[in-house]
């Protein structure tokens, strides 16, 4: 088995993930790109398990399992944040999110209520 093949696959996938995180505006697509990066790391860990002889056998695969668990936790909290953002601002575009503290308190009512007020 030539380890360079999965290593190069993982490197290209990681580059694609970085590109996607920087390029995409939709927060759900940004999360998908983060998944690509995490999977590239998993592939590197599993491949390193075959090329490096560690003291403990299968350490790379154990770490890959840990990374999968971390990714599951990340996607749960991340999607909760995205849905809350959609509820507050009615958008999921990441460059519409203000990075500074709001000068006036954020109106936490539903978008439908705000629309009704704007129409009035």
């Amino acid at each position: 088995m030539r380890p360079v093949i999965p290593y190069v696959t993982a490197a290209l996938l990681f580059g694609l993930g970085v590109y996607g995180v920087l390029r995409r505006r939709n927060a759900v697509l940004v999360l998908m790109s983060v998944e690509l990066m995490l999977n590239a790391v998993n592939l590197i860990l599993v491949t390193a398990d075959t090329t490096a002889r560690a003291v403990l056998p299968h350490s790379g695969q154990v770490f890959a399992l840990f990374v999968i668990v971390l990714a599951a936790a990340e996607i749960g909290v991340g999607l909760a944040i995205v849905l809350q953002l959609y509820r507050l601002r009615a958008t999921v575009a990441v460059d519409d999110v203000p990075l500074t503290e709001p000068t006036q308190p954020v109106d936490e009512r539903e978008p439908a209520v705000l629309d009704a007020e704007a129409r009035r």
Binding site: L12, G15, T50
Partner: peptide, 27 residues
């Protein structure tokens, strides 16, 4: 994005290809 992503991907590729060449390991 293309610059940084492509740079990261190609940089890692060059690094790993240089490290492992066409070597072979047993599973």
């Amino acid at each position: 994005a293309a610059l940084i992503g492509g740079g990261a991907g190609l940089g890692l590729t060059v690094l790993l290809v240089d490290a492992y060449r066409w070597s072979s390991v047993a599973l």
